[in-house]
Amino acid sequence: MASSPLVDPHATQAHHRALAHQFDSLDQQKESSTLGMWLFLVTEIMFFGGLFTAYVIYRTLYPQAFALASHTLNVPLGGANTAILIGSSLTMVLAIWAAQVNWRKGIALFLLATIALGATFLGIKSVEYREKFETHHVPGPSFHFVPESEHVKVTDPQLERHASIFFSLYFIMTGLHALHMIIGIGILAVLTVLAWKGKYDSEYHNPLEMTGLYWHFVDIVWIFLFPLLYLLGAHAR
């Protein structure tokens, strides 16, 4: 064994330009990156999961403060953002579809649409954030919360403190979600350029699929954030 010559492991195989040296075939490479991406998404589930845990616990401890604080969020804007994000997921899968049917320009177009929708989401989000600053609903020294409810009208210090926990969670959860979107948009921008240059086709479009998984995951996080943060106090009106 020791005397056998060092053979080039690729010598006998057709070598695709995108095949990394440690893999034997593109299939193996694709299966590996898919599994790797899903494992990464599992870490993301657990990462946001810590926040959801905190949310569930405090919501159970302080249901009234959470409902009243949730009531101040802008449901039409949040709902519109939900629709926009779902739309961006649609354009993302259509980009992959375009790759599968070898429509190279289509890939770039759909990716651009995804970026545009993602940016719109962030724009609306920043309008909401500004509103929170103006109404002093940002936790910190100037935090002030008077519930707009028929049952509770006066400032209740305890309720105010508990509401600040809701707003802390609101900002951290939506903030981290927005950060994920910004990272996603950055990756999509790179992919758009590469797609425009014709790097992806029906045979090889793995980076599109992986980015798609990430983008859809971010969508799923929002699918849970929207009812938990925005809708929980809707009927308390």
Binding site: T43, E44, I45, M46, F47, F48, G49, G50, L51, A54, P139, G140, P141, R161, S164, I165, S168, L169, F171, I172
Partner: peptide, 20 residues
């Protein structure tokens, strides 16, 4: 990831005085 978010919450709470 859970320790990551937990320590991040500690850092955020300490920096911005949010109450978690």
């Amino acid at each position: 990831p859970v320790i990551a978010i937990t320590l991040l919450l500690v850092a955020v709470e300490k920096t911005f005085h949010l109450g978690i």
